[in-house]
Amino acid sequence: MALGQQHVLSFSPDGKLFAFINDQGILRIWDTETNELKQEYTPNIQLSGPCTALTWVITSFAGDGIVEGKKIERNLKGEGHSGKVTCLAQDAEGHLFSSGEDCQIIVWSLSDEKQLSSWSVGTEKPYSIIYLGISNNVVVGGRQIKVYSVATQELVQTFTGHTSDINLISSLILDECTEYVISTSRMERIICLWKMAKR
Results as ranks from 00 to 15, higher is better:
Ile72Val: 13
Ile21Ala: 02
Val121Met: 05
Ile129Ala: 00
Ser118Val: 04
Ser99Pro: 12
Phe159Ser: 06
Ala197Cys: 14
Trp108Leu: 05
Val57Pro: 06
Met1Leu: 07
Val150Ser: 00
Ile145Trp: 03
Gly161Lys: 08
Leu110Cys: 02
Thr32Glu: 08
Leu47Ile: 04
Glu33Gly: 09
Ser117Glu: 12
Ser135Trp: 03
Arg74Asn: 09
Asp165Trp: 12
Thr178Trp: 05
Met1His: 12
Leu174Cys: 01
Asp14Pro: 07
Asn137Val: 03
Ala89Thr: 04
Ser82Pro: 05
Ser183Gly: 04
Ala197Trp: 01
Leu9His: 09
Trp119Asn: 02
Thr178Cys: 01
Lys70Pro: 01
Phe97Asp: 04
Ile45Tyr: 03
Ile173Trp: 00
Cys192Pro: 04
Ser117Thr: 06
Ser10Ala: 10
Gly161Met: 07
Pro13Thr: 00
Leu174Ile: 01
Arg143Cys: 07
Tyr148Cys: 03
Thr52Tyr: 08
Ser111Cys: 04
Gln39Val: 12
Thr152Ala: 09
Leu168Trp: 14
Ala197Gly: 13
Gln24Tyr: 09
Leu47Ser: 09
Ile166Glu: 03
Lys16Ala: 10
Val138Ala: 08
Gly94Lys: 05
Thr55Trp: 07
Val138Ser: 10
Gly83Ala: 10
Asn167Gln: 08
Glu179Val: 14
Ser99Arg: 02
Leu3Thr: 00
Gly78Val: 06
Thr158Trp: 12
Ala53Val: 01
Gly4Met: 14
Ile106His: 03
Tyr180Thr: 02
Gly122Lys: 10
Tyr148Phe: 15
Ile45Thr: 04
Ser12Ala: 07
Ile21Phe: 03
Lys125Ile: 13
Arg186His: 12
Ser99Glu: 06
Thr123Trp: 00
Ser128Thr: 13
Val156Ile: 07
Asp64Leu: 10
His162Arg: 14
Glu124Gly: 04
Tyr131Ile: 00
Trp119Cys: 01
Leu155Met: 01
Val139Glu: 10
Val181Gly: 05
His81Trp: 01
Gln6Asp: 11
Lys125Arg: 13
Leu174Glu: 11
Leu116Pro: 09
Ser164Asn: 12
Ser120Val: 00
Asp112Arg: 15
Ser48Pro: 00
Pro13Asn: 00
Val107Pro: 08
Leu96Arg: 00
Ile169Arg: 11
Gly69Arg: 06
Ser118Asp: 01
Phe18Cys: 10
Pro126Thr: 09
Asn136Gln: 11
Ile134Gly: 01
Thr158Arg: 13
Gln5Cys: 04
Phe159Arg: 02
Gln90Arg: 08
Asp175Ala: 15
Ile45Phe: 01
Glu33Arg: 15
Glu36Ile: 14
Gln157Thr: 05
Val147Asp: 04
Gln6Ile: 02
Gly141Val: 12
Gly133Trp: 09
